[in-house]
Design a protein around this nucleic acid. Structure first.
Lengths: 253, 253
DNA sequence: TATAATATGTTCATAAATGTTTAAGTATGT
DNA sequence: ACATACTTAAACATTTATGAACATATTATA
């Protein structure tokens, strides 16, 4: 197993269990405890985990942004299932807004099988992917490109979106909380998502279950703004009930 | 098996598995580990994969899916030489406009070694490439994405450029004629190039010699608009003399 | 066909990752 | 405070991966 792979699994384990001991990780991954310590040191240096005596916990609920490569490896199966459901909501000929991120990339991979869509996105990789594989009308918002993710930010992107009337938007988020709604680490990202929601008829939130119960800095909107919230079935029971109590259409795939 | 074929299979393998070790690729493809390392080095240089100790992970699936190889295979050496000269004109800290196309992609590959640039481009692939490999400020114009090339067109892109003041723009063209100047097959492309030229201090035309002596429909500008025209030394003598007679700074690399 | 250019294989010194040992540090119960 | 059990990190040993240099094979070109 490669080093990066092992570190990825530690992140995955932490996402699932919130906490892990050096010993259990050492046994699980069949490496010396010292190796696990060095891995945890790396994760701490990169702001992903916080070391404790005997193990580590995920960095506080106010999560920072994890680099793209790490993200794309984690929860990939869940994302594919979420994407499958999301794509089933799309009719041929519709105008679709896709938010940036790996979950929306998974949706994009399925949408190319549809006919005659208009795709609007801030994610350059999604724009390149769809435009190179279909004859859809692909619109890219433009703006400042965020180096870590390849997505457009800034007033140009927001202004571009203001001119759009879409049938459906798919919004991704890494911080979803029943009480505080969805939040982002930057004002710019929040502005983009707000505008995407504003100019779409139907709003769908797509995010794997690890994103729930987390808060970031800038609020985008409350959960009741969405027609549907699509996530995977590992969502913890408490959150599940809380959302359903609010009469929100929660889809577990 | 051809080299390009093998590299294609590595990309395919990475797309399926997200991650791969040198050893498994070596066994799978029946070549020496060193060959795999060289392949992975190539893929990393081209922004397709990220190497790790012992293997590699996929960077972003899209660049791989684009028929880059095919396009850029023609006149690739000439383009690299042209790009080398073009890149040498760029100072750290400058604002650069890059037109769409493979020659400008070659320039982009060299610009990532500079410091602190601001890059403005209509080419999504260039935007993704530079933003994912540097901390430069990358601006993408946005607009309608042309499906065949992955570049932005339309009034959004032109309007975006109107707000830019650049030090240098690098313009590509497939139709250059001493008498008729540079021409494009569509009004949209012409509008973009015109605006790029208008908002740049210094204008450089980059095109391999096969593009000379050709005419298309919509005129962009005359050749004397450019501070320098950079092409390869296979340019035919007649055109060479004609351009120099017009007192234009022609660079043959 | 001969020759040049390119791609691939091999070897080996170097570097990186991991394992092991051990002294010092930390938590916890009495 | 003390003893005990556990955790840590430094130092060194071991394993494994890497890339440079050169040899060989393959492909392109004259």
């Amino acid at each position: 197993m490669l080093q990066i792979e092992r570190r990825q699994m530690i992140i995955q384990y932490l996402e699932d269990h919130e906490i892990a001991t050096v010993e259990e990780l050492s046994k699980l991954l069949n490496v010396a405890p010292m190796t696990i310590r060095r891995d945890l040191q790396y994760l701490e240096d990169n702001g992903i985990a916080t070391r404790t005596f005997g193990g580590a916990v995920l960095k506080s609920k106010l999560i920072a942004e994890i680099p793209y490569e790490n993200k794309s490896l984690s929860k990939i199966d869940e994302k594919k299932r979420i994407a499958e459901y999301a794509a089933s909501l799309v009719q041929n000929g519709q105008v679709i807004i896709l938010d940036a991120g790996t979950t929306n990339m998974e949706i994009a991979k399925l949408l190319i099988k549809k006919q005659n869509l208009v795709i609007v996105t801030t994610d350059l990789k999604i724009a390149v992917y769809i435009s190179s594989t279909t004859d859809f009308n692909v619109l890219c918002t433009g703006g400042n490109v965020q180096n870590s993710t390849g997505s457009c930010l800034g007033s140009n992107a927001v202004d571009f979106l203001k001119g759009i009337n879409a049938d459906i938007c798919f919004i991704g988020s890494s911080s979803i909380d029943v009480e505080h709604g969805i939040t982002t680490p930057s004002l710019q990202k929040s502005d983009i998502k707000k505008q995407m929601i504003k100019c779409s008829e139907c709003k769908i939130l797509v995010a794997d279950s690890s994103k729930f119960g987390k808060k970031s800095f800038i609020k985008v909107c409350d959960l009741n703004q969405f027609e549907k919230i699509v996530t995977d079935s590992s969502l913890n029971e408490h959150t599940n009930v809380e959302i359903k109590n609010k009469n929100i259409n929660l889809i577990l795939v």
